[in-house]
Protein backbone atom coordinates (compact mmCIF):
# COMPACT_ATOMS: atom_id res chain seq x y z
CA UNK A 1 0.00 0.00 0.00
CA UNK A 2 1.25 3.39 -1.03
CA UNK A 3 -0.95 5.59 1.04
CA UNK A 4 1.87 7.13 3.13
CA UNK A 5 4.02 8.29 0.18
CA UNK A 6 1.63 10.77 -1.36
CA UNK A 7 2.68 13.96 -3.11
CA UNK A 8 0.95 17.12 -1.83
CA UNK A 9 -1.53 16.97 -4.76
CA UNK A 10 -2.27 13.31 -4.14
CA UNK A 11 -2.76 14.12 -0.46
CA UNK A 12 -5.36 16.71 -1.53
CA UNK A 13 -7.23 14.03 -3.50
CA UNK A 14 -7.01 11.70 -0.52
CA UNK A 15 -8.53 14.40 1.71
CA UNK A 16 -11.19 15.06 -0.93
CA UNK A 17 -12.28 11.44 -0.67
CA UNK A 18 -13.31 12.07 2.93
CA UNK A 19 -16.49 13.47 1.33
CA UNK A 20 -17.44 9.99 0.13
CA UNK A 21 -19.50 8.12 2.69
CA UNK A 22 -20.27 4.45 3.09
CA UNK A 23 -24.07 4.86 3.29
CA UNK A 24 -24.50 1.82 5.55
CA UNK A 25 -22.18 2.86 8.37
CA UNK A 26 -22.33 6.61 7.61
CA UNK A 27 -18.52 6.92 7.89
CA UNK A 28 -16.26 8.23 5.13
CA UNK A 29 -14.30 5.72 3.07
CA UNK A 30 -10.89 7.19 3.94
CA UNK A 31 -11.42 6.66 7.66
CA UNK A 32 -12.79 3.20 6.94
CA UNK A 33 -9.42 2.41 5.36
CA UNK A 34 -10.86 1.55 1.96
CA UNK A 35 -8.40 3.68 -0.07
CA UNK A 36 -5.19 1.77 -0.84
CA UNK A 37 -3.43 4.00 -3.41
CA UNK A 38 -3.80 7.42 -5.00
CA UNK A 39 -1.66 8.31 -8.05
CA UNK A 40 -1.69 11.50 -10.04
CA UNK A 41 0.14 11.54 -13.38
CA UNK A 42 0.56 15.13 -14.50
CA UNK A 43 1.83 14.25 -18.00
CA UNK A 44 -0.92 11.80 -18.87
CA UNK A 45 -3.53 13.82 -16.99
CA UNK A 46 -4.57 10.67 -15.18
CA UNK A 47 -5.72 10.10 -11.60
CA UNK A 48 -5.70 6.48 -10.49
CA UNK A 49 -7.32 5.40 -7.23
CA UNK A 50 -6.93 1.84 -5.96
CA UNK A 51 -9.47 0.91 -3.34
CA UNK A 52 -11.33 -1.96 -1.75
CA UNK A 53 -14.68 -2.56 -0.04
CA UNK A 54 -15.28 -4.02 3.39
CA UNK A 55 -17.07 -7.02 1.94
CA UNK A 56 -17.40 -8.76 -1.41
CA UNK A 57 -20.79 -8.46 -3.04
CA UNK A 58 -21.50 -5.24 -1.11
CA UNK A 59 -24.83 -3.99 -2.53
CA UNK A 60 -23.64 -0.39 -2.22
CA UNK A 61 -20.25 -1.02 -3.83
CA UNK A 62 -21.02 0.42 -7.25
CA UNK A 63 -22.51 3.54 -5.72
CA UNK A 64 -19.42 4.14 -3.59
CA UNK A 65 -17.09 3.68 -6.60
CA UNK A 66 -19.18 6.01 -8.70
CA UNK A 67 -19.16 8.55 -5.87
CA UNK A 68 -15.34 8.45 -5.74
CA UNK A 69 -15.15 9.10 -9.46
CA UNK A 70 -17.68 11.95 -9.38
CA UNK A 71 -16.07 13.69 -6.42
CA UNK A 72 -12.57 13.63 -7.98
CA UNK A 73 -13.84 14.57 -11.42
CA UNK A 74 -15.61 17.58 -9.92
CA UNK A 75 -12.33 19.01 -8.65
CA UNK A 76 -10.13 17.76 -11.52
CA UNK A 77 -12.27 18.18 -14.66
CA UNK A 78 -9.27 18.02 -17.01
CA UNK A 79 -8.11 14.64 -15.75
CA UNK A 80 -9.15 11.08 -16.56
CA UNK A 81 -10.21 9.41 -13.33
CA UNK A 82 -9.70 5.68 -13.01
CA UNK A 83 -11.05 3.91 -9.94
CA UNK A 84 -9.77 0.36 -9.54
CA UNK A 85 -11.40 -2.07 -7.13
CA UNK A 86 -9.15 -4.74 -5.61
CA UNK A 87 -9.78 -7.51 -3.10
CA UNK A 88 -6.11 -8.10 -2.25
CA UNK A 89 -4.90 -7.28 0.31
CA UNK A 90 -8.16 -8.12 1.99
CA UNK A 91 -9.66 -5.28 4.02
CA UNK A 92 -9.70 -5.80 7.80
CA UNK A 93 -11.10 -3.63 10.58
CA UNK A 94 -7.47 -2.85 11.59
CA UNK A 95 -7.38 -0.44 8.63
CA UNK A 96 -10.02 1.82 10.19
CA UNK A 97 -8.49 5.05 11.52
CA UNK A 98 -9.00 6.30 15.06
CA UNK A 99 -11.46 8.93 13.74
CA UNK A 100 -13.32 6.17 11.89
CA UNK A 101 -13.60 4.09 15.05
CA UNK A 102 -15.05 7.01 16.94
CA UNK A 103 -17.54 7.73 14.16
CA UNK A 104 -18.69 4.10 14.03
CA UNK A 105 -19.45 4.29 17.76
Amino acid sequence: MNIHNLTPEEQKIFELLKNVMDPEVAVNIVDLGLIYEVHLNEEEKLIHVVMTLSTRGCPLGDTILQNVEVVIQGSYPDYIVKVELVWEPEWTPDLITEAGREAIG
Binding site: L53, G57, C58, P59, G61, L65, L85, W87
Partner: peptide, 11 residues
Protein backbone atom coordinates in the same frame (compact mmCIF):
# COMPACT_ATOMS: atom_id res chain seq x y z
CA UNK B 1 -18.10 -4.49 -14.32
CA UNK B 2 -15.51 -5.01 -11.58
CA UNK B 3 -15.66 -8.45 -9.95
CA UNK B 4 -17.23 -8.76 -6.51
CA UNK B 5 -19.85 -6.06 -6.95
CA UNK B 6 -23.56 -6.67 -6.90
CA UNK B 7 -25.29 -3.38 -7.69
CA UNK B 8 -25.50 -4.13 -11.40
CA UNK B 9 -26.76 -7.63 -10.61
CA UNK B 10 -29.59 -6.28 -8.47
CA UNK B 11 -33.09 -7.06 -9.75
Amino acid sequence: MQAGLSTKNAP
